[in-house]
Design a protein around this nucleic acid. Sequence first.
DNA 1: AGATTGAATGATTTGTTGCTTATTCAGTCG
DNA 2: CGACTGAATAAGCAACAAATCATTCAATCT
Lengths: 212, 212
Amino acid sequence: MALQKSSMGEKGSDRGETIKGQIVAAAKKRFSHFGYGKTTMAEVASDCGMSPGNLYRFFPGKLDIAEAIATADFEKRLAQQRGFARQTGKSAPEKLADLLFDELRSTYHQLEKDPRVFEMARVIAAERPSFGNWILENQRRILVEILEEGGAQGEFYVRDKLFTAEMIQSATMKFHYPQLFSQLTLSKLERELDGVLQLLLTGLRARVPAPA
Amino acid sequence: MALQKSSMGEKGSDRGETIKGQIVAAAKKRFSHFGYGKTTMAEVASDCGMSPGNLYRFFPGKLDIAEAIATADFEKRLAQQRGFARQTGKSAPEKLADLLFDELRSTYHQLEKDPRVFEMARVIAAERPSFGNWILENQRRILVEILEEGGAQGEFYVRDKLFTAEMIQSATMKFHYPQLFSQLTLSKLERELDGVLQLLLTGLRARVPAPA
DNA sequence: AGATTGAATGATTTGTTGCTTATTCAGTCG
DNA sequence: CGACTGAATAAGCAACAAATCATTCAATCT
């Protein structure tokens, strides 16, 4: 009776136009209202005017709906970060700073605002380790873009750009999952990120890659 | 009847010579055999030939015994790391590398070998956040030592050494609590630490601190 | 035939009960 | 009197029962 095929890309976010989109929208509302654990598949199904069993024709399971929500959110953020990387009239170091500070502030506020988001993040991270890798991989691509442009402009001197991007992620890990480790206030975190970034930038700018 | 006063420093580790030391030794044996949760105060007391109530004249509570054990362990490690910092015939960068790699390998092996240690670490970290700060603070002092010597030798150009030490800790956080985040093998972690360290070292060596 | 349902199933969560154990402290001991 | 004990308390935890819920699938519908 109802169509389910989307003409958009694999991870595209559709806002209620396809059935999958409708399910995601309904689940999102419930998850952020009552939490992932307290939302039942039956509720989501009835919100969409269908039976619980029918949900499984669109998603393999509950967790996959949560993953779809998270994917859409991160894709929005990735788009914004790609925007930072492509700003005109900014140096590569500035772009890098914009990207990392945005990341810190976004997740900090998102998790501050709502413990439900935190719950979803924890569940997904626990059950789907590959999801975290997907995010890191995509952000790394943006970092490589910045490093490449910085190299072309003579701002950075980096040999292996992909590896370096990985190291930047490694060194700024603390700021990607702020409240997981530190219980620090946002302004302390910003101060620290600034410090780490200065150190890294000096390293990236230096002509000598690394002695034996 | 029995003496309890120690003539050593506040956090000194005594090996069964004082009563506190005897308690710590007995608890350590049980904790590492059966785990923190499965060890009762009554057992520790009877190992020491005293009543459960009497333990409380020496420690405020069970967790404080665990903390004393952890403190002694970390003091041993700190002493070793101070040793690294004071090696003769090594450059400051090399000392820094020795210190960080030792930290990574020590905790990795300790946690790998024995889940009991992991349990104790988790409990202490959860209930006594200040303990983690004490460790960081002490290690930071060693880092400052290295940075100062590096500065004197013309190997590093760093203005605020204490702040820089904090940033180094921040950037290498991932390697201090290896299996908490990553599930990476030791050799992958070592490779990553090496990469991050190269980046940081380049930054520390550079003459230009940081442009506006 | 393919889409959809909803009762059946088994896993997980919740609630409850009784026991174990950290901690205290009135009392004993030397 | 201060060192020490061990029963008393209450906090936390394990074990079990009941209920809930994700997931499946035989049957129904269009």
